[in-house]
């Protein structure tokens, strides 16, 4: 499993998370999964889009080589989660990319807006460690092992 690779060529999961502690807890949980997975962590929305569209620091990447899914925090520096989601849905290459919103916010308006923008799932980060780990592992298992994406 490759972590924090600055120029990763391909990845299974793109984790967009600015909080170092949340990122480490999520990585810890994913590490516990008995599945092959490669996680790339980016720390803000701008970097997430650079990665997906192979721009800036990620210009060497093959833009067709998309992650299996994106774990997206909402409150992010520079470009926030909703804007990232909007950009992903606006581009033909990433329109079908599964995006799981993972956030602390239970606010109904955030839930509504995320689904309106085309989020595939909305998960509130549990504070409790066990529940958090379970949630992350359930998400990983579902999107990596069970979900089938459209062949284009």
């Amino acid at each position: 499993m490759t972590l924090l690779a600055p120029v990763s060529t391909c990845t299974d999961i793109l984790l967009v998370e600015d909080q170092a502690s949340d990122a480490e807890l999520a990585l810890h949980a994913l590490r516990g999964l008995d599945l092959d997975r490669d996680v790339t962590l980016v720390r803000d929305g701008a970097e997430a889009l650079d990665f997906l569209f192979a721009r800036g620091a990620y210009s060497d990447r093959d833009p067709d080589d998309l992650p299996r899914f994106v774990l997206l925090d909402l409150k992010l520096p520079k470009v926030d989660g909703l804007q990232v989601l909007e950009a992903i849905r606006a581009d033909d290459r990433t329109r079908d990319l599964p995006v799981v919103v993972l956030t602390s916010s239970k606010e109904a308006c955030d839930v509504d807006r995320c689904y309106e923008m085309g989020a595939n799932s909305y998960v509130v980060k549990p504070v409790d460690f066990d529940k958090f780990t379970d949630a992350i592992q359930d998400i990983g298992r579902y999107w990596l092992a069970h979900n089938i994406i459209r062949d284009r």
């Binding site: 949340d22 807890l25 602390s104 549990p126």
Partner: peptide
């Protein structure tokens, strides 16, 4: 809701 939970989750998790 957002900001207090993150450090709390860290204290709990770590």
């Amino acid at each position: 809701s957002h900001d207090l939970r993150t450090p709390l989750r860290a204290v709990d998790g770590f």
